[in-house]
């Protein structure tokens, strides 16, 4: 049981990373095409204000998940290293391009349209590379070169693309409403379109899983009613007036994405690499696990209140305290 629990922080960290990374990646689209927000300079300032000061700190969640998996399932590390060398190369190249673009657009405040466009492409390609390149290996257990694996890679890349668009547009619609900015119908249309595409593709996923990956299909079976219910609620809330429900709609978007994400991740357990390695066969020694959990507990006592303080200062009144 402890082996199952040990995998959870890594999955939760990946979930947080997916959300924050999606918002950051989506932000580049709104800087490239401010007309989508339609809130002029105020909208541009809002997006930049969200991304700065330390956008790359988002990657801490990815590194945390990676290190957590390495720490608790060390036996699997050499296999991950050998198998993921190519997908991670692709991901790092895209991240490198993206990082240079982010520095140019958000710190130098550069205006070159070509670089901005390149940044948008790299920003959407990064989650697609991560989902399409890395995830299939964990699920199928071999480097994805066969037809099934290539289909899975393409499919997961599409899921990542629409999830990024859906989460980021929902978030900036919420943020604009919170900042009392007048946005255009383009943002509503974009959010709605991304939501429809995301819902369509996740249900296509489950249909596809049924035929090509029965293990994942049966594992996700129990979560399907919840995902379907959340999809329907999202659809019902979509036409309601923007400002009043933007916060609730963003939470609903996260809930739908979260239910899908956790359904697939939990269906993967107990395998860390299917079918050769499980959380049981790769688990670290009990003494190391105990030290790691204790250190994490102590760290949480410091970090969680600090996050609370950051949230308080960012979201409350701007007058001196």
């Amino acid at each position: 049981m402890i082996q199952y629990l040990a995998a959870l922080p890594a999955i939760i960290s990946l979930f947080i990373y997916a959300i924050l990374f999606s918002i950051e990646c989506g932000a580049t689209l709104f800087v490239f095409a401010p007309g989508l927000l339609g809130a002029g300079e105020d909208g541009d300032r809002m997006v930049r204000g969200y991304v700065n000061p330390a956008w790359e700190a988002t990657n801490v969640f990815l590194i945390f998940a990676l290190l957590w998996l390495i720490a608790f399932f060390p036996v699997a590390v050499p296999v991950w290293g050998h198998a993921l060398i190519l997908p991670f190369l692709l991901f790092l190249i895209i991240m490198g391009i993206r990082s240079v673009g982010m520095l140019y657009v958000f710190y130098k405040e550069g205006t070159n349209r070509v670089i901005k466009l390149l940044l948008v492409v790299a920003s959407f390609a990064a989650p697609m590379a991560l989902a399409g390149g890395v995830l299939p290996f964990f699920i199928t257990g071999i480097t994805p070169y066969g037809a099934t694996q290539l289909f899975l890679a393409f499919h997961l890349a599409c899921v990542a693309f629409f999830a990024t668009l859906f989460i980021s547009s929902s978030f900036f619609r919420y943020l604009a409403a919170r900042n009392k900015l007048r946005t255009t119908g383009s943002l509503d249309s974009l959010t709605f379109g991304a939501m429809i595409a995301f819902i369509a593709i996740i249900f296509l996923s489950f249909l596809a899983f049924k035929n090509i990956m029965p293990r994942i299909a049966s594992g996700t079976q129990a979560y399907l009613p919840l995902i379907a219910a959340l999809a329907i609620i999202n659809l019902i809330f979509a036409p309601l007036p923007t400002k009043r429900c933007s916060g609730a709609r963003f939470v609903l978007a996260l809930a739908l994405f979260g239910a899908t994400f956790f359904a697939i991740m939990l269906a993967q357990l107990p395998y860390v690499i299917y079918p050769a390695m499980t959380v049981f066969s790769t688990f670290t020694d009990p003494a190391s696990a105990k030290i790691m959990l204790e250190a994490s507990g102590i760290a949480a006592i410091v970090i969680l209140p600090s996050l609370g303080l950051l949230y308080h200062l960012v979201t409350t009144k701007k007058d001196p305290d």
Partner: peptide, 25 residues
Amino acid sequence: VSKVIILPFNLETYAFFLEAIFLGI
């Protein structure tokens, strides 16, 4: 490393978290 000395990597992540949070503040 993952078997013998992964603890400092783990702790480094938390230290970096702390730094990132307060840098923002």
